[in-house]
Nucleic acid binder design. Structure first.
Length: 828
RNA sequence: GCCCAGAUGGCGGAAUUGGUAGACGCGAUGGACUCAAAAUCCAUUGGUGGCAACAUCAUGAGAGUUCGAUUCUCUCUCUGGGCACCA
């Protein structure tokens, strides 16, 4: 018997597949399309550990089956290579991030290739390639030059808004360019603004949230160096994702995603429906509050403003205790800067003495307070306090001895209308910051003119290429290193770069037409490929990438650039593979298992089978190298059967057992065996097909193990049947099945062979096993003909010795239950 | 604190619309082969009682619905994830 040399076999076929372009996707085709996508990786310096390919293997198995089922499958891979780690690596090793990225991609590709994926590598994308980010920049400009039309409920070009202003507003034309700019900035879907950032004075740089850790006293410090971090307001670019909040929630209904991820997104966007109600005050300014409990309006005993409320200054000035109020506001701001956001703090506040608010429902005068338990950034930055029904208000009222009153509920909608309020929806989600004060990202293609206005970089000047710099170190001012490039600054280019999520928000569209120089993808290609049918990746992207790309996609849809409103129809989240100690695999714990080692020792096929067999695809699992041996034994058993005399015997006959039975008179006994094996084969084909479709890979493999164990015992197996088995195993173990397939004389790759169909006739059993329960306990098992009547089944049951033992007298039976072909239950 | 998911042998996990709990794999024990080992093969493997047939208990805990519950309902415990004063 030939030796199973996995290294030789796997290298041989990987090379052959590449040379023959077996997995090349057709550009346009009469075949139906199927798009199977992995979340592309960030190529870190550490390379892959065995956990990373889990999702890739699952999607690969799926893609391979779809390909064999006759679809034109798009199954690509690429790299998301902008971002902080590459920049940090560059700073530490004094090399250009591009060089670091190139090196890391090479490592990744090498590791991926060994596992035998069916990617069409001719479509590879890399977000840091200027030919790619040209289109990231182009899309940014489309967003920048658009606004959200609330009437049409979709994005429209900003030029339409300008026209509208010109028509309806006489003063518009009189405004200076800068004034116009300022107004338009309030509408643009990408806009300039200010926001708080994490500022580390010692490092002279802005830090991302994951670069900050707590020191032993719980204060935020930089992960690198342990220096204090504070809040600082800086100029930023934003994306107006809030305009899409409603659609981002409601369109979730149509997606075939796990309810878990949908729930996370829903909570993150955080829709609340409520009322905006105005309280008149004793000074000449109203207070508008937002509440979801307008029904409790009569129970209001005070009104609270956030210390950062837009009009807080005016209220402070007109209060009798101005000094005290001003001091409180100052302190509150100070706290925001320092404090860790997560701790629940004791409520503090101060009354605006002399100022009263008037409850519009009943004209009652209530006091007005400033307190930092009210957030400026949510609702209207002011609330009406109903201590009886709101825990926070009650806590505050108790502390400051404010009245807590019990008033009857009223209808929320009616009262809102009665007091001239407005029914509104509010969202927790904030506009997304779209700027990093870093070097290694896509330059934002805007130019700041000397007069303060902003203009686009012209389309034909794109890509605006990231310039070389002498140092990637932070500038110390908080600005990106680009500010230190003389020519860049002189030209007035924006010095912020785009955040990591820019390039990953649309990459799946580029795969459809990766080399296109005239558009991010050709219209025809977009029309053919439409959207991603099956998207596989980690659930940690629920509130990041998966939300941002939906937002970008909806924008592109509004503007007519893509044919669907949602990018990813079905989403599967693979579970994480933990180290055998139950912790995450990490260099830090020294518990990393490299797939290269596993492939070398056990083979790629074994690795693939094992990772799919470990447990449910979406569940996290600890890695256990000892258990791999089971998958290896399974693969070896297949090899052994392929090379055994039992297959050769059958091979010579070269027709299936069913036919054999009819044509030649084999002994009855052996025919029966063959029939049983063939029935099992077809049952397995059915199960494996369904299980792959449902991503239940572990049970698919288990079913194939059962089949292989039976084949191992069989005296002969027809080659036709064995080939059918090889085909359903091929998505999991493409190398060994290819080797055997070709040895059996096939000329074309098994990986593009037609997916087997099971024969329904072979699934029909003529006798069934029926369980007999007495009072719900299993007491016997009887064989009945498949077409037996209910009476006949009961009759057979009574003939059983054990049943007789438990029910000597059939008249004792109170109730008889028969579940067809499965079970009987006698209640006595 | 609120929201979501989960808990099944020594371990990873199966179980169709409520219908034989423990498929498949790992590990373990005994045996065959071998000078020996590895590999492979055979048998056993949830607990208790019994030589056995078999009986009995058992799916985190407790209750409920049902002829019948791992599956449905309620309460609780624990584990994992999300949110963090969002009015």
């Amino acid at each position: 018997m030939k030796q199973y040399d996995h290294n030789k076999i796997e290298k041989k076929w990987q090379k052959e597949w590449e040379v023959k372009k077996v997995y090349k996707t057709e550009n346009s085709s009469k075949k139906k399309k199927y798009y199977v996508l992995d979340m592309f990786p960030y190529p870190s310096g550490a390379g892959l550990h065995v956990g990373h390919p889990r999702g890739y293997i699952g999607s690969d198995v799926y893609a391979r089956m779809k390909r064999m089922q006759g679809y034109n499958v798009l199954h690509p891979m690429g790299y998301d290579a902008f971002g902080l780690p590459a920049e940090q690596y560059a700073i530490e090793h004094k090399i250009h991030p591009r060089k670091a990225v190139e090196k890391n991609i090479k490592t990744f590709r090498g590791q991926l290739d060994k596992i035998g994926f069916s990617y069409d590598w001719s479509r590879e994308v890399n977000t840091t390639d200027p030919e790619y980010y040209k289109w990231t920049q182009w899309i940014f400009l489309q967003i920048y030059n658009s606004y959200y039309d609330e009437q049409k409920n979709k994005a429209r070009p900003i030029s339409e808004l300008i026209k509208k202003f010109e028509k309806t507003d006489k003063n518009w034309k009189k405004l200076s360019e800068i004034e116009k700019e300022k107004i338009l900035m309030n509408y643009r879907l990408a806009y300039e603004g200010y926001s708080e950032v994490n500022w580390c004075p010692k490092l002279g740089t802005v830090l991302a949230n994951d670069e900050i850790v707590d020191d032993k006293d719980g204060n935020p410090v930089s992960e690198r160096g342990g220096y204090p971090v504070e809040k600082k307001s800086m100029r930023q670019w934003f994306m107006r994702i809030t305009a899409y909040a409603d659609r981002l929630v409601s369109d979730l209904d149509g997606l075939n995603w796990s309810s878990h991820i949908k729930e996370i997104q829903k909570n993150w966007i955080g829709v609340s429906e409520g009322s905006e109600i105005e309280f008149k005050t004793s000074i000449n300014r109203n207070i508008k509050v937002f509440t979801t409990r307008a029904d409790t309006l009569f129970g209001v005993t005070y009104v609270v403003l956030s210390p950062e409320h837009t009009n807080i200054g005016e209220f402070a000035v007109q209060s009798q205790n101005m000094a005290e109020v001003t001091e409180y506001i100052r302190e509150a701001k100070e706290r925001v800067k320092k404090e860790d956001i997560t701790v629940e703090k004791e409520k503090t506040g101060v009354e605006l003495k002399g100022i009263k608010a008037i409850n519009p429902a009943n004209g009652e005068e209530v006091p007005v307070w400033v307190a930092d338990y009210v957030l400026a950034s949510y609702g209207t930055g002011a609330v009406m306090a109903v201590p009886l029904h709101d825990e926070r208000d009650r806590e505050f009222a108790e502390k400051y001895n404010l009245p807590i009153i019990d008033r009857p509920f009223v209808d929320a909608k009616e009262i809102t209308e009665k007091v001239n309020g407005k029914l509104v929806k509010k969202y927790k989600i904030r506009d997304a910051v779209f700027a990093r004060q870093r070097y290694w990202g896509e330059p934002i293609p805007l130019i700041h003119n000397a007069d303060g206005t902003i203009r686009d970089v012209a389309d034909k000047k794109l890509p605006l290429v990231l310039p070389s710099v002498t140092s990637y170190e932070p500038t110390g001012t908080g600005e990106s290193p680009l500010a230190g490039v003389k020519a860049w600054a002189k030209a007035g280019y924006e010095t912020n770069t785009m955040p990591g999520w820019a390039g990953s928000s649309w990459y799946f569209l580029r795969y459809m037409d990766p080399k296109n120089k005239k558009a991010f993808a050709d219209k025809k290609m977009l029309k053919y490929w439409k959207d991603v049918d099956m998207y596989v990746g980690g659930q940690e992207h629920a509130t990041g990438h998966l939300l941002y790309s939906r937002f970008w996609h909806k924008f592109l849809f509004d503007m007519g650039y893509v044919p669907t409103a949602e990018p990813f129809k079905t989403l599967k989240n693979q579970g994480m593979i933990l180290a055998s100690d139950g912790r995450k695999m990490s260099k830090r714990w020294g518990n990393v298992i490299n797939p290269d080692d596993i492939v070398k020792t056990y083979g790629a096929d074994t690795l693939r089978v094992y990772e799919m067999f470990m447990g449910p695809f979406e569940a996290s699992q600890p890695w256990n190298t000892d258990s791999i041996i089971g998958s290896r034994r399974f693969i070896e058993k297949v090899w052994r059967i392929a090379n055994s005399a039992s297959l050769d015997n059958a091979f010579r006959r070269s027709h299936s057992v069913l036919e054999g039975q009819v044509r030649s008179g084999h002994s009855e006994d052996s025919s029966k065996h063959h029939l049983a094996l063939q029935k099992l084969l077809h049952k397995t084909i059915k199960k494996v097909s369904e299980d792959i479709e449902n991503f239940s890979f572990n049970t698919a493999i288990s079913a194939m193990m059962v089949l292989v164990n039976e084949m191992d015992k069989a005296e002969n197996i027809s080659s036709a049947d064995f080939k059918l088995f090889l085909q359903i195993l091929a998505p999991f173990a493409p190398h060994i099945t290819e080797e055997i397939w070709r040895e059996m004389g096939e000329k074309k790759s098994i990986n593009i062979a037609t997916w087997p169909k099971y024969n329904p006739k072979l699934l029909i059993e003529d006798t069934l096993k029926v369980v007999v329960q007495i009072n719900g306990k299993v007491r016997a098992e009887i064989d009945i003909p498949a077409d037996a009547s209910e009476e006949k089944v009961f009759e057979t049951a009574f003939e059983n010795e054990n049943v007789k033992k438990w029910i000597p007298n059939t008249s004792e039976i109170k109730k008889k239950i028969y579940v067809k072909g499965r079970l009987i239950n006698f209640v006595v």
